[in-house]
Amino acid sequence: MSQPLLKVSNLKKHYIIRDRLFAKRRVLAAVDNVSFAVGRRETLGIVGESGCGKSTLARCLVSLEKTTSGQIQFDGVELTAASQEELRQLRRNLQIVFQDPYAALNPLRTVGESIIEPLLNYNPGDSRELEEKVEQLLTVVGLNPEYKTRYPYQFSGGQLQRVNIARALALNPALVVCDEAVSNLDSIVKTQIVDLLLRLQDEFSMSYIFITHDLHVVRRIADRVAVMLGGKIVEVLPAGELAAAIHPYTRYLLSSTLSGDPRRRRQRKPGTQLTGPAGNGSAAVSGCALQHRCPEFCEQCHVEEPILKTIGSIHQVACHLIG
């Protein structure tokens, strides 16, 4: 990869929590020592089950959460050390689309007013030019420009997500983080939104970080896939080679994808079933985050955390059983 657009190094986001009012405080490692890079016009998919740290990572990347430690370099600028004004300017090129399209919009504003807001913040100018820009953005995402005077409650979920995408595009960003952006949509609308994102990537020359739990979607939209478990990345491989995943957790995710054949849904390949509940991401647990659920664990899994190792050219995996 040439000079990456985004480079994340040893990123951590820990929370101090109490389970009960007078209980002892403990550390929750929502994101724990995560490193990756995203190239220009590349889509990195990030997958994992609920609670693995995907959304916390997304919020750290766009500076909605303050990181505990680590570095985030965006277009050569260190975000974790940037001033408020520097961050404000950098956000022009770094946008996010959230999971809930309704919650992401102000219900008291028309969608046109929501789309125009970032333009007013950065490029205040002639009102007629701004109105034309809003109409252009609505057209680009497949909506009637006359819809600019409507309110969020007058739209379906898929239409509202198109509005959110239009707002993210307003400043022509270099990178858009899609945090479960299609998870709340039905299958037909989900396909339409994915098609839209692929077309917009070509048209605007953007990069994406596409966070999802849907492996069918990530295969279609991503160039590479990073698999998260317990706040860590445990495998990185090309999206087209997901079937060749070798980490036990990735194989479990693949086997959990529903098939149209009921006979296949009743059967899983050997070595793809996990036991026990998902972990809580506690930094107090030593060793592998999968150790209490993996049927293939060894003694080393209990005492030593596996690190990402390169297998082949661009395939990485963190597992003591693979060397």
Rank of each mutant, 00 (worst) to 15 (best):
Q3V: 11
P4K: 10
L5E: 06
L11P: 06
K13R: 14
V27I: 12
V31Q: 01
V31K: 04
N33I: 09
N33C: 05
S35E: 02
S35K: 06
F36Y: 05
G39C: 00
R40L: 00
G45W: 05
C52R: 08
L57A: 04
R59V: 00
C60M: 10
L61S: 10
S63P: 00
S63D: 05
T67R: 04
T68K: 02
S69T: 09
Q71E: 13
I72S: 02
Q73C: 09
V77G: 00
S83W: 11
L87E: 07
R88P: 01
I96W: 10
P101Q: 08
A103I: 11
A103T: 08
A104S: 15
L105V: 11
R109H: 13
R109T: 00
E113I: 04
P124W: 10
G125D: 04
G125I: 08
D126S: 03
L130S: 08
Q136T: 11
G142T: 03
N144R: 12
P145F: 08
K148W: 12
Y151I: 12
Y151H: 09
S156Q: 01
V163H: 08
N164E: 06
A168W: 01
L171I: 02
L171N: 07
L171R: 09
L171S: 08
N172E: 10
V182Q: 01
N184F: 06
S187P: 00
S187Q: 10
I188E: 13
V189T: 12
K190W: 00
Q192Y: 02
I193Q: 04
I193M: 05
L197S: 04
L197F: 05
M206L: 12
T212I: 13
H213L: 11
D223M: 00
V225Q: 04
A226S: 03
G230S: 09
G231S: 04
G240L: 01
E241H: 01
H247S: 11
T250S: 15
Y252P: 03
L258F: 08
R264T: 13
K269D: 15
G271I: 13
T272E: 07
T272M: 11
L274A: 11
G279D: 13
G279Y: 13
A283Q: 08
G287S: 08
A289E: 07
C298T: 15
E305G: 08
I307V: 14
I311L: 15
G312E: 03
H315Y: 12
C319V: 10
L321P: 01
